[in-house]
């Protein structure tokens, strides 16, 4: 067993013990709400965390291959949400008679996902081609600043195109207000829409892992990530691989944008800022560059945010989330499942 793997197991064990301790406290010792409240918050946190995890994957993939923090990623998420809104509006919105109840709604949602993922994917490729590729050999601060520039460019472009008004998918009207009650009518309630988000996120994550592990593109991605020059000498075209990485990462952000719009009913040009920041936090907490780390980090950030909002207050949830980020960084600078950078001495 490598030292790195051992360290990751130690981290996961520590995290597991902390979560178990918190669960026991919340369920048995917390003076206020009891188990139903705890598990309701947990379900909410997993749903929210699934969205963050998808955003985090884009950050981690780009960082893994280019060592670039793509701060425009949150805004690609926002553009994805708008593309899906465009598809929905073409049909006439959630209340359109053109959308039959049940399967019809699900079909529309599927179209929204497909359009948002494709559109966001190509947007990611365009950003890489025109904003990052010319700076590939520049000092690392240059593409970082460009990334911020692209973020503002996207936000203001959407403001000019669509105005500042909040828009909504009316996601529950589109899919269903129903769900599953666990533990009776006053027990934990899991909406079908929430379940759909979790299942979609897990499916996309599994698909991504399969792609990276077992496809030619995945092998090429790993090779370019390990050593771009050596990979080029072996016949891999790094530019194509990097473009492919941006496409996949951005497509996942687009999917996350649709999920966010369906669940939280608010689409606006600044929505990518905080969600992007949380996704970035998730990627760092999980270990930036690590795909399972991004998923774990996303779920953890979602859970902590949900618990903090429920047990403390919405005012302090971000304080708690980012406080934990600082704590983890102090104890484990490379994140929970990250690999420490080796320095040749």
């Amino acid at each position: 067993m490598s030292q790195n793997l051992r360290q990751q197991l130690v981290n996961l064990t520590g995290l597991g013990i902390a979560l178990l301790g918190w669960t026991l406290y919340a369920v048995y010792l917390s003076p206020t709400q009891g188990w139903t409240f705890y598990f309701q918050l947990t379900v909410n946190g997993i749903i929210l965390g699934s969205v963050y995890a998808l955003i985090a994957l884009g950050y981690t993939m780009v960082y893994g291959i280019l060592k670039l923090l793509n701060f425009a990623h949150g805004d690609v998420f926002m553009v994805g949400a708008f593309i899906a809104l465009g598809v929905l509006n073409l049909i006439g919105g959630a209340f359109s008679p053109a959308i039959p109840a049940g399967a019809g709604g699900a079909l529309i949602v599927l179209c929204m996902f497909a359009a948002a993922m494709t559109g966001s994917g190509f947007l990611g490729v365009a950003i890489e081609r025109f904003a990052y590729r010319p700076l590939r050999n520049a000092p690392r601060i240059a593409p970082l600043i460009t990334a911020l520039g692209v973020a503002f460019f996207l936000e203001n472009s959407m403001l000019l195109l669509f105005g500042s008004k909040f828009r909504t998918y009316n996601g529950f009207d589109l899919v269903s207000y129903n769900g599953i009650h666990i533990g009776g009518d006053n027990g934990v309630f899991v909406q079908y829409l929430g379940l759909m988000v979790i299942v979609s996120a897990v499916a996309l994550m599994i698909g991504l892992i399969a792609l990276v592990r077992w496809t030619q593109l995945g092998r090429a991605m790993r090779a370019v990530s390990f050593d771009r020059e050596a990979a080029a000498m072996m016949g891999i075209d790094p530019d194509r691989v990097i473009a492919g990485t941006f496409f996949i990462g951005s497509a996942l952000a687009g999917a996350a944008g649709v999920m966010f719009g369906l669940l939280y009913s608010q689409i606006y040009h600044l929505m990518g800022f905080l969600a992007g920041l949380k996704g970035f936090t998730a990627a760092v907490v999980g270990g930036i560059g690590s795909i399972p780390g991004a998923m774990l980090g996303g779920l953890l950030v979602g859970l902590v945010e949900s618990w903090a909002k429920g047990y403390l207050s919405g005012n302090v949830s971000d304080l708690v989330v980012f406080g934990i980020l600082i704590g983890i960084m102090l104890v484990r600078p490379s994140g929970l499942l990250g690999t420490p950078a080796l320095q040749k001495v």
Binding site: Q33, F37, Q40, L41, N44, I47, L48, F260, L263, Y264, Q266, M271, L274, E305, S306, W307, K309, G310, S313, G314, N315, S317
Partner: peptide, 15 residues
């Protein structure tokens, strides 16, 4: 009490 920045109300609703 809830901030105007909130988009996810699920925890508040659970309360």
């Amino acid at each position: 009490s809830v901030s105007q920045d909130t988009t996810d109300f699920s925890s508040l609703i659970a309360k």
